[in-house]
Protein backbone atom coordinates (compact mmCIF):
# COMPACT_ATOMS: atom_id res chain seq x y z
CA UNK A 1 0.00 0.00 0.00
CA UNK A 2 2.77 2.44 0.81
CA UNK A 3 6.34 2.88 -0.30
CA UNK A 4 7.97 1.85 2.95
CA UNK A 5 6.37 -1.55 2.80
CA UNK A 6 8.60 -4.54 2.27
CA UNK A 7 11.66 -3.24 4.04
CA UNK A 8 10.51 -4.14 7.52
CA UNK A 9 10.10 -7.88 7.38
CA UNK A 10 11.42 -10.63 5.14
CA UNK A 11 8.94 -12.06 2.70
CA UNK A 12 7.02 -15.00 4.08
CA UNK A 13 7.77 -18.17 2.17
CA UNK A 14 5.33 -18.39 -0.72
CA UNK A 15 4.91 -21.36 -3.01
CA UNK A 16 5.17 -20.53 -6.68
CA UNK A 17 1.57 -21.59 -7.33
CA UNK A 18 0.31 -18.78 -5.08
CA UNK A 19 0.93 -16.37 -7.97
CA UNK A 20 -2.44 -17.27 -9.40
CA UNK A 21 -4.15 -17.82 -6.07
CA UNK A 22 -3.11 -14.31 -5.13
CA UNK A 23 -5.83 -12.86 -7.30
CA UNK A 24 -8.10 -15.81 -8.08
CA UNK A 25 -9.29 -16.30 -4.50
CA UNK A 26 -9.93 -12.59 -3.86
CA UNK A 27 -11.85 -12.43 -7.16
CA UNK A 28 -13.92 -15.45 -6.17
CA UNK A 29 -14.69 -13.98 -2.77
CA UNK A 30 -15.57 -10.62 -4.34
CA UNK A 31 -17.84 -12.37 -6.81
CA UNK A 32 -19.56 -14.22 -4.00
CA UNK A 33 -20.06 -10.96 -2.10
CA UNK A 34 -21.71 -9.33 -5.13
CA UNK A 35 -23.82 -12.42 -5.76
CA UNK A 36 -24.88 -12.68 -2.13
CA UNK A 37 -25.97 -9.03 -2.07
CA UNK A 38 -27.90 -9.44 -5.30
CA UNK A 39 -29.63 -12.61 -4.13
CA UNK A 40 -30.52 -11.06 -0.80
CA UNK A 41 -31.87 -7.96 -2.53
CA UNK A 42 -33.89 -10.11 -4.90
CA UNK A 43 -35.23 -12.75 -2.51
CA UNK A 44 -35.76 -10.66 0.61
CA UNK A 45 -39.20 -9.11 0.66
CA UNK A 46 -38.47 -5.39 0.39
CA UNK A 47 -40.15 -3.57 3.25
CA UNK A 48 -40.26 -0.09 1.77
CA UNK A 49 -38.86 1.28 4.99
CA UNK A 50 -35.64 0.91 6.97
CA UNK A 51 -33.62 2.54 9.71
CA UNK A 52 -32.30 5.89 8.64
CA UNK A 53 -30.70 9.09 9.86
CA UNK A 54 -32.96 11.83 11.17
CA UNK A 55 -32.75 15.45 10.08
CA UNK A 56 -33.41 14.97 6.40
CA UNK A 57 -36.66 15.41 4.54
CA UNK A 58 -36.72 11.83 3.25
CA UNK A 59 -34.65 8.65 3.14
CA UNK A 60 -33.91 9.47 -0.48
CA UNK A 61 -32.14 12.64 0.61
CA UNK A 62 -30.20 10.88 3.34
CA UNK A 63 -28.98 8.33 0.83
CA UNK A 64 -28.29 10.88 -1.88
CA UNK A 65 -26.13 12.97 0.43
CA UNK A 66 -24.29 9.96 1.85
CA UNK A 67 -23.67 8.70 -1.69
CA UNK A 68 -22.47 12.14 -2.72
CA UNK A 69 -20.12 12.14 0.26
CA UNK A 70 -18.80 8.73 -0.72
CA UNK A 71 -18.32 9.93 -4.30
CA UNK A 72 -16.43 13.03 -3.10
CA UNK A 73 -14.02 10.85 -1.12
CA UNK A 74 -13.74 8.51 -4.09
CA UNK A 75 -12.55 11.45 -6.18
CA UNK A 76 -9.99 12.19 -3.45
CA UNK A 77 -9.00 8.53 -3.86
CA UNK A 78 -8.28 8.91 -7.56
CA UNK A 79 -6.32 12.14 -7.13
CA UNK A 80 -4.27 10.78 -4.23
CA UNK A 81 -3.59 7.57 -6.16
CA UNK A 82 -2.41 9.55 -9.19
CA UNK A 83 -0.10 11.57 -6.94
CA UNK A 84 1.20 8.38 -5.28
CA UNK A 85 1.99 6.82 -8.63
CA UNK A 86 3.66 10.04 -9.78
CA UNK A 87 1.19 10.52 -12.61
CA UNK A 88 0.63 14.21 -12.00
CA UNK A 89 3.40 16.26 -13.57
CA UNK A 90 5.49 18.42 -11.27
CA UNK A 91 3.82 17.04 -8.15
CA UNK A 92 5.95 14.93 -5.84
CA UNK A 93 4.05 12.73 -3.44
CA UNK A 94 4.03 14.25 0.04
CA UNK A 95 4.65 11.91 2.95
CA UNK A 96 1.01 12.00 4.03
CA UNK A 97 -0.45 11.00 0.67
CA UNK A 98 -0.71 7.33 1.68
CA UNK A 99 -2.62 8.26 4.81
CA UNK A 100 -4.92 10.52 2.81
CA UNK A 101 -5.54 7.72 0.32
CA UNK A 102 -6.26 5.14 3.00
CA UNK A 103 -8.55 7.32 5.07
CA UNK A 104 -10.48 8.81 2.16
CA UNK A 105 -11.10 5.24 1.02
CA UNK A 106 -12.23 4.09 4.42
CA UNK A 107 -14.57 7.06 4.81
CA UNK A 108 -16.03 6.55 1.33
CA UNK A 109 -16.64 2.88 2.07
CA UNK A 110 -18.17 3.50 5.48
CA UNK A 111 -20.47 6.17 4.00
CA UNK A 112 -21.59 3.74 1.30
CA UNK A 113 -22.48 0.88 3.65
CA UNK A 114 -25.61 2.40 5.29
CA UNK A 115 -26.88 3.45 1.87
CA UNK A 116 -26.48 -0.06 0.56
CA UNK A 117 -28.19 -1.59 3.57
CA UNK A 118 -31.12 0.78 3.18
CA UNK A 119 -31.35 -0.13 -0.52
CA UNK A 120 -31.18 -3.85 0.17
CA UNK A 121 -33.60 -3.86 3.06
CA UNK A 122 -36.17 -1.31 2.00
CA UNK A 123 -36.06 -1.50 -1.80
CA UNK A 124 -34.30 -4.69 -2.88
CA UNK A 125 -32.75 -5.59 -6.21
CA UNK A 126 -35.19 -4.15 -8.74
CA UNK A 127 -35.39 -4.05 -12.52
CA UNK A 128 -38.48 -1.99 -13.32
CA UNK A 129 -36.51 0.61 -15.27
CA UNK A 130 -33.13 0.73 -16.96
CA UNK A 131 -31.80 3.16 -14.39
CA UNK A 132 -32.96 0.97 -11.53
CA UNK A 133 -31.58 -2.20 -13.08
CA UNK A 134 -28.18 -0.62 -13.77
CA UNK A 135 -28.13 0.78 -10.26
CA UNK A 136 -28.98 -2.59 -8.72
CA UNK A 137 -26.27 -4.39 -10.68
CA UNK A 138 -23.62 -1.75 -10.04
CA UNK A 139 -24.54 -1.60 -6.35
CA UNK A 140 -23.83 -5.30 -5.91
CA UNK A 141 -20.76 -5.14 -8.17
CA UNK A 142 -19.28 -2.24 -6.18
CA UNK A 143 -19.05 -4.17 -2.94
CA UNK A 144 -17.69 -7.20 -4.78
CA UNK A 145 -15.04 -5.08 -6.49
CA UNK A 146 -14.19 -3.29 -3.25
CA UNK A 147 -13.76 -6.66 -1.54
CA UNK A 148 -11.36 -7.76 -4.28
CA UNK A 149 -9.39 -4.54 -3.98
CA UNK A 150 -9.08 -4.88 -0.20
CA UNK A 151 -8.10 -8.55 -0.38
CA UNK A 152 -5.38 -8.09 -3.00
CA UNK A 153 -4.04 -4.87 -1.48
CA UNK A 154 -1.67 -6.53 1.02
CA UNK A 155 -0.41 -9.11 -1.50
CA UNK A 156 3.14 -8.66 -2.59
CA UNK A 157 4.58 -9.02 -6.04
CA UNK A 158 1.42 -8.10 -7.90
CA UNK A 159 1.75 -6.91 -11.45
CA UNK A 160 1.90 -3.15 -11.51
CA UNK A 161 -1.44 -2.66 -13.25
CA UNK A 162 -3.48 -4.81 -10.86
CA UNK A 163 -4.13 -2.30 -8.06
CA UNK A 164 -4.80 0.64 -10.42
CA UNK A 165 -7.14 -1.62 -12.39
CA UNK A 166 -9.21 -2.61 -9.36
CA UNK A 167 -9.10 0.93 -8.05
CA UNK A 168 -10.53 2.10 -11.37
CA UNK A 169 -13.22 -0.59 -11.31
CA UNK A 170 -14.27 0.39 -7.79
CA UNK A 171 -14.25 4.09 -8.66
CA UNK A 172 -16.16 3.75 -11.93
CA UNK A 173 -18.79 1.50 -10.35
CA UNK A 174 -19.33 4.05 -7.61
CA UNK A 175 -19.63 6.86 -10.16
CA UNK A 176 -22.19 4.76 -12.04
CA UNK A 177 -24.09 4.15 -8.82
CA UNK A 178 -24.06 7.86 -8.01
CA UNK A 179 -25.34 8.87 -11.45
CA UNK A 180 -28.16 6.33 -11.35
CA UNK A 181 -29.23 7.32 -7.84
CA UNK A 182 -28.18 10.58 -6.21
CA UNK A 183 -27.75 12.51 -9.48
CA UNK A 184 -31.14 11.26 -10.66
CA UNK A 185 -32.69 11.97 -7.27
CA UNK A 186 -31.33 15.52 -6.97
CA UNK A 187 -32.26 16.38 -10.54
CA UNK A 188 -35.76 14.97 -10.05
CA UNK A 189 -36.61 16.28 -6.60
CA UNK A 190 -34.19 19.20 -6.20
CA UNK A 191 -31.08 19.73 -4.12
CA UNK A 192 -31.82 20.24 -0.45
CA UNK A 193 -31.73 18.31 2.77
Amino acid sequence: MTAQQGTSAPLPPQPVSSGVLKWVIPCLIGGLVALALGLYGRLHHATGIAVNIAGFSSPGYVKSWLATGATFFAIVQVISALVMYGKIPRVTAPSWIGTLHRWSGRIAFILAVPVAIHCLYALGFQSYSTRVLIHSILGCAFFGAFTVKMLILPKQGLRSWVLPFWGAVVFLTLIGIWFTSAYWFFSTFGIHR
Binding site: T47, I49, A50, V51, I110, I117, T147, P154
Partner: peptide
Protein backbone atom coordinates in the same frame (compact mmCIF):
# COMPACT_ATOMS: atom_id res chain seq x y z
CA UNK B 1 -0.60 -5.58 6.09
CA UNK B 2 -4.01 -6.46 7.51
CA UNK B 3 -5.51 -2.97 7.53
CA UNK B 4 -7.41 -3.46 4.23
CA UNK B 5 -8.99 -6.58 5.71
CA UNK B 6 -9.81 -4.61 8.84
CA UNK B 7 -11.50 -1.95 6.69
CA UNK B 8 -13.51 -4.65 4.97
CA UNK B 9 -14.52 -6.32 8.22
CA UNK B 10 -15.44 -2.98 9.81
CA UNK B 11 -17.74 -2.19 6.89
CA UNK B 12 -19.21 -5.68 6.98
CA UNK B 13 -19.80 -5.40 10.72
CA UNK B 14 -21.50 -2.03 10.25
CA UNK B 15 -23.67 -3.55 7.55
CA UNK B 16 -24.64 -6.51 9.73
CA UNK B 17 -25.47 -4.26 12.67
CA UNK B 18 -27.65 -2.04 10.48
CA UNK B 19 -29.35 -5.08 9.01
CA UNK B 20 -30.11 -6.48 12.46
CA UNK B 21 -31.45 -3.11 13.64
CA UNK B 22 -33.63 -3.09 10.52
CA UNK B 23 -34.89 -6.60 11.14
CA UNK B 24 -35.79 -5.66 14.69
CA UNK B 25 -37.31 -2.30 13.79
CA UNK B 26 -39.09 -3.27 10.59
CA UNK B 27 -39.64 -7.01 10.47
CA UNK B 28 -40.58 -8.45 7.15
Amino acid sequence: RNTPLLTLLTGAALGVVLLIVNMVSYPN
